[in-house]
Each structure stands twice: as C-alpha cells, then as structure tokens.
Amino acid sequence: MKNIVLFSTLFIFTACGLTTARPKLEMTYAQTAFIAAKDAGAQTLAPNLYRKSEYYYLKAKSSYRRKFFNQAKKYAELSQKFAEQAEFKAYKKKALDSL
C-alpha cells in the first residue's frame, strides 16, 4: 500500500514536469513584429536585422510544429527582438532621409 501511494505521488509530480505550455503568445508577438518590420521596409533599410528575425521566426515555427515548445519560445523571442530592432532602424533611416 505504501509503495502504491509513493509511486502514484511520484508519477503525478513527474507527469506535471513533462508538460510544457505551448508558446502561442510568443509566436503571435514574433509574427506581429515580423510583419511590422516588413511593412516598415526593413528588408531593404535594415537587411541584416530583418534576415536574423526571419531566420529565428522560421526556426520558431519549425520547432513549434515538431512540438519543441521550449526552443520555439526561445526562437520566437529572438525573432521578435530582431524584428523590433529592424523596424526601428528602418523608421529611423526613413526619418533621417527625409530631413
């Protein structure tokens, strides 16, 4: 009886540790930031940052499809970071060119 209780308790705790939440919000933020960078013209005005963002976004999508949610979250956050930097740089270049 004691072994059954110990086994079931141990099973419940390990099962909870194996489940990982899907990074839906992070994926949505990365997609939105990537689209905003594209709309700002970052592919021509900040191509290096835009390419990095695209690379990490595609890796995030691939990891998400293969159910590697921890990797997908990490890649989505990197994609969002580079997309936001690319968008900012693109708008900055547009503003400086218009002066």
Rank of each mutant, 00 (worst) to 15 (best):
A36V: 02
A15P: 01
R65G: 06
R51D: 03
T28A: 03
A30G: 01
K24H: 02
V5F: 12
A15N: 04
S79P: 08
Y64R: 13
K2A: 05
E77Y: 04
R51K: 08
T9P: 05
T19I: 07
I12K: 03
F11L: 00
K24D: 01
Y91E: 08
Y64N: 15
A30Y: 07
S8Y: 10
Q43N: 05
K94D: 11
L58K: 15
I4C: 01
A37L: 01
K94N: 09
L99W: 14
R51E: 09
F11C: 08
L78R: 11
L58W: 09
Q80T: 10
A72W: 07
Y64H: 11
F34S: 01
I4A: 04
K38N: 06
L25E: 06
K92Q: 15
T32D: 14
K94R: 14
R65A: 15
E54K: 02
E84M: 15
A36S: 11
A95Y: 14
F88Y: 02
A76M: 15
K89E: 07
S62G: 15
A76H: 10
A83R: 00
A83N: 10
I35W: 00
D39C: 01
L96Y: 07
E54F: 08
L10Q: 05
A72K: 11
E26Y: 12
Y55N: 06
K59A: 09
A21N: 04
K93V: 15
K61S: 05
A60I: 04
T44M: 02
Y50N: 07
E87D: 02
T32L: 07
P47Y: 00
G17L: 14
K89V: 13
K52Q: 11
Y50W: 05
F34H: 01
Y57L: 13
I12S: 02
A46V: 05
N48W: 10
S79F: 06
E54M: 04
N70W: 10
K93W: 07
F69V: 01
R66Q: 06
N48E: 04
Y75D: 04
K38W: 02
E77R: 13
K38C: 00
T32Y: 03
Q85S: 11
K61D: 03
K67N: 11
Y64I: 01
K89M: 05
Y64S: 15
E54L: 06
V5W: 03
A37T: 00
A46C: 07
Y57F: 14
E84G: 09
K73M: 13
Q85V: 08
F13K: 12
A86R: 09
E87F: 06
E77W: 09
Y91V: 02
L58F: 12
F88A: 02
Q31P: 00
N3M: 14
E84D: 06
A60S: 12
K74P: 13
L18I: 01
Q71E: 09
T9D: 07
T44P: 03
Y56K: 03
R51T: 06
T9E: 13
E54C: 05
T20C: 11
G41Q: 01
A76E: 09
Y29K: 13
A76Y: 10
Q80D: 09
A36R: 05
K73S: 13
F34I: 01
P23R: 03
T19Y: 08
A46W: 00
Q43S: 14
R65L: 12
A90V: 04
A40H: 10
A46T: 07
S8C: 15
R22G: 03
L49H: 03
F88N: 11
S63L: 00
K74N: 12
E77A: 13
K81E: 07
A36C: 09
C16P: 05
I35S: 08
K81W: 12
L45R: 01
E26W: 02
